[in-house]
Design a binder for these strands. Structure first.
Lengths: 214, 214
DNA sequence: CCGGACCCTAAGCGCTCGCTCACCCCGGAG
DNA sequence: CTCCGGGGTGAGCGAGCGCTTAGGGTCCGG
């Protein structure tokens, strides 16, 4: 009863920082971070539980004190990652400003997150199929909410006349796809910072939806 | 000496059709097609050689008559797939017309291929890391040539004044990224045909690079 | 009839996987 | 000191992996 649970209470008013800050037993967090790195580098199926444990400085058996299975690690990573990504999008949707401003902010912050946390994002976005049938629907639902958030802004812009978008669902898919794929190609040793990529992509997306002649 | 090598000589003047048409022993082609499906559905590391063989209607051992290892299958798929994709881009680059026409054609045909052959494209684009150190450089080199092809068209358009692109390398990455990610989300049972997605994406890309005010 | 080249299979080798279990170390209460 | 419980470990389990090998069916020229 002394050092046990301070899980709740801190709130999550921050959305852009280290995602694993409030994973509570210290050893469990180290294992989670190790799993993110391993999954991002080698893929879920090519990663062994022995590899995860040794990255966290533990024996292979220690993993099973904190997680029931290897898939539970992937599920927890996917859940937290999608929550963070969705929170970023929702904040942009619910902010004040024109549709163009909100769309630019959504793309900028979403891309910044995918670049800055490209290891996490890679696992979150590309290892969804590695989840079993039992766990996948929960994550797919989160993803659909991200889709709806972007479509919401684009629809607003079309209705207000700011945007000229012949195919709203198709353009929504394209915008999200563009942002998500950042996690695949972004390299921390490359020349661009996450901020720069975010600014570039926000500009490109605004061009995609802008009314052609005013 | 009788039926051995007729590999070369047929030429590859066709770029948009079934990619495995000229894989010569019939059993080897069936195994390759089975491997593409399995890798696309489950990923390379989650696919067993027993699964590939049984999809091709053979025993597990039959695979090793035609291929030395499981990775050789992935390498062959990657090589053929990248060759086809690059050929499509090169044809657009070397065609006649304005930069805008060539860029639109490049995106349209590249996207059409990624949608129409999304299983192959998924393996080609997303399983590159599963190749060992020995084989990866060859495929990476092919990918760089695709990158250079798109950059070439965009540079032409900037120099001729057709395009207004502040960041040519960044925009090149974005365009390719947009096209490639089609392989991830495209669903054959969905509402859109590969042609429709190609047309939509060509339009979106032209908007991204178009001179804002003329 | 034979004999062998060509494909393919049944069986299984050696290995590593995800995961388990019996035990140990160590700080705090009595 | 003893006792105890929770986080950790060493060793190893059954299973399934990539891949190999000995041999069988079939079609050929003789």
């Amino acid at each position: 009863m002394t050092q046990d649970e301070r899980v709740e209470g801190v709130g999550d008013e921050v959305t852009d920082e280290m995602p694993w800050a409030d994973v509570t037993p210290d050893a469990a967090r180290r294992l989670l971070v190790a799993a993110v790195q391993a999954f991002a580098e080698r893929g879920y199926h090519a990663t062994t539980t022995r590899d995860i444990a040794s990255r966290a400085g533990m024996s292979p058996a220690a993993l099973y004190i904190h997680y029931k299975t290897k898939e539970e690690l992937l599920l927890k990573i996917s859940r937290i990652g999608h929550d963070k990504a969705l929170a970023i999008l929702r904040r942009a949707v619910e902010s004040d400003g024109t549709a163009a401003e909100r769309l630019a902010e959504a793309v900028r912050s979403f891309v910044r997150w995918h670049a800055g946390h490209h290891m996490t994002a890679r696992v979150v976005q590309y290892e969804l199929d590695s989840l079993g049938e039992a766990n996948r629907p929960e994550i797919v639902a989160l993803r659909r909410r991200s889709d709806a958030s972007v479509r919401e802004i684009i629809n607003d812009g079309v209705e207000s006349g700011e945007f000229d978008v012949p195919d709203v669902p198709g353009t929504t898919v394209a915008v999200l796809s563009l942002c998500i794929d950042v996690a695949r190609w972004f390299n921390a040793e490359g020349k661009r910072t996450p901020d720069e990529v975010g600014a570039l992509y926000a500009d490109l997306v605004l061009r995609m939806v802008a009314a052609q002649k005013q």
